[in-house]
């Protein structure tokens, strides 16, 4: 089995997995970073969203073999203390219901806001449309993205 050296949350890590192993399962099963969630495995729900070189990507659909020299950030590495403005906004607005989708929502929102810190409501909806929340906490997610934007400026 090939060996991969990857940089996750600023830390260089080595794993032995088959080349088609999705980053999601490397994170969850090999590296014990279980904050990134499995929802569908086919890029449809966004529960597995991480940042790869700052861009929100679906870790379930990203094989380990393509991320060699890239920087991966997961929910565990978004901030050291849970105080990223998006996390703070999520807490303030009390977004989660079951909470399972929320790591993915936060990762999508934080990558989006890094590129557009004063989004319109329409832009927020477009940015978050790919992340399913089965509990349908969409009103809160929308509000939290707005609140986070105010914290970023």
């Amino acid at each position: 089995m090939p060996t991969y050296s990857i940089k996750i949350n600023g830390k260089q890590q080595t794993v032995n997995v088959s080349e088609d192993t999705p980053l999601l399962w490397v994170l969850r099963d090999q590296l014990n970073l279980v904050g990134t969630k499995f929802g569908c495995g086919i890029g449809q729900c966004g529960a597995c969203t991480v940042h790869i070189n700052g861009t929100a990507m679906r870790s379930c659909s990203t094989p380990i073999s393509v991320i060699a020299d890239k920087e991966v950030t997961t929910i565990e590495g978004l901030s050291t203390d849970g105080l990223h403005p998006v996390q703070e906004a999520w807490k303030e607005v009390d977004v989660p219901q079951c909470g399972y989708c929320q790591a993915g929502q936060i990762m999508t929102a934080s990558a989006f806001l890094a590129k557009n810190s004063s989004p319109s409501s329409e832009e927020i909806k477009n940015a978050m449309h790919g992340n399913i929340c089965r509990c349908a906490a969409y009103n809160r997610i929308h509000k939290a993205v707005e609140v986070a934007a105010t914290k970023l400026v």
Binding site: L33, V34, G35, T36, T74, I75, E76, L78, S79, G82, Q87, W90, K91, D94, P96, G99, Q102, A103, I106
Partner: peptide, 14 residues
């Protein structure tokens, strides 16, 4: 707010 909020937003095993 949700009693598990800090764990949820930081990706702790839950």
């Amino acid at each position: 707010v949700n009693v598990d909020i800090d764990k949820i937003i930081t990706g702790k095993p839950l």
